[in-house]
Write a protein that binds this DNA or RNA. Structure first.
Lengths: 208, 208
DNA sequence: CTCTGATTCAAACGACCGTTTGAACTATGC
DNA sequence: GCATAGTTCAAACGGTCGTTTGAATCAGAG
């Protein structure tokens, strides 16, 4: 099998998303990252410039395929007419869970990383996540508004925030093991359950 | 007006829940806390023993009234018969938002503190929150299962986790300002919207 | 080969971390 | 008054933090 010799830069990004996803930004030291990546401390500042720039690069790399898939699905839906709320929710949630949870160990690491950064205690860190998902989210929000004409715009925005939060929650696995019940094992089932949960809430729970 | 001279211990707890709520556990130093509390560095170890013990004490103090109110409401509901899912959701969510968001500036600080700790990147910190809310949560989960006999137990647990997550999300204000829409200002309205959202999702979104 | 730019390295920088020490201060009871 | 327990204090502890330095190593072009 072909393992094309990872560059120091790639190894740093891989280890960064793993460690940042486990311990958060403040709770993870550059030394822990560089040791695990078999790189010199100075490599971080050489390749990225600073700890925060390393995080920014890791967030951008992790979010890119998710955003691409979301854009592709939204384009496709809008080309076929006016998408329903369920179609929109599915097109938003599945790339976040599916695309990232289905791909074995590595996918779970990326998912947890994204979910944790999205909820980081520091607003400055959270904004790194927001900056990477901003444009596509605005498109989804607008499409949701036209799909739910009977709900007030603020109500749709409220639902949208909840969707973002629940997605990040399940990505980060922050509430597992669940208190008093085993978590859903199959990622596909998790996606279906989350979508059904959100669709029901959007369709009947958004009375402004 | 009576300001009965806050003790050093109380000032430390007050500042701790404010700062930990802003920057998270790892991102907040004891020096930042003690300076803001006008206390000596050594006071933390004198009164609590360690940084983590200070956090534990702050979590316990912040959660106590919420747990008390949840217990009271659940007792009351169960004394009157078999509570509905909506009643249970309301009895669980309102003490977390209401009791804590309605009480002006201080309440918002406590709410954010709890919400942030519940989502802290470090599992060890999250468990401090879980330890304070464990027993009462088990009772709610059991009551929800009997209120939703048509949903599988794992599905109810899934919905319960989502309720916990959304509550902590709105308490922590982690997603405000919302991308593309103003957040709901009135805490009472927020509670009503969240309850409606959850009730709809529980009633129709939990097909296992 | 030499030269050049990119990369890696050990080592150190100053700053900040949580914690500890031991003396100084305070309040209360005798 | 003295003694005692509770509390506060400045100062320092050893360690770790992100970052920087300047020399060593590497790869590729001429």
């Amino acid at each position: 099998m072909e393992t094309p010799v990872e560059s120091t830069r790639e190894r740093l990004l891989n280890v960064a998303e793993q460690r940042f996803g486990e311990g958060g930004y403040e709770g993870t030291s550059l030394r822990a990252i560089t040791v695990a990546a078999a790189a010199n401390i100075a490599a971080v500042n050489y390749h990225f410039g600073s700890k925060e720039a390393l995080l920014r690069a890791a967030v951008a790399r992790a979010m890119a395929p998710v955003n691409t898939e979301r854009r592709r699905r939204l384009d496709q839906l809008e080309a076929a007419g006016t998408p329903s709320a369920e179609q929109l929710i599915r097109a938003f949630v599945e790339p976040g869970l599916d695309l990232v949870l289905r791909r074995g160990e590595r996918g779970a690491v990326v998912a947890r990383f994204i979910g944790r950064i999205a909820f980081d205690p520091s607003q400055r860190i959270r904004e790194l996540y927001v900056a990477e998902s901003d444009p596509i989210e605005a498109r989804y929000l607008a499409a949701l508004r036209t799909a739910l004409p009977h709900s007030a715009p603020e109500a749709v925005a409220f639902g949208y925030v909840n969707m973002l939060g629940l997605l990040a929650l399940h990505q980060s696995q922050a509430l597992t093991p669940a208190p008093g019940g085993a978590e859903l094992e199959d990622p596909g089932k998790l996606a279906e359950n989350l979508i059904a949960f959100l669709v029901a809430a959007f369709d009947r729970g958004l009375r402004a």
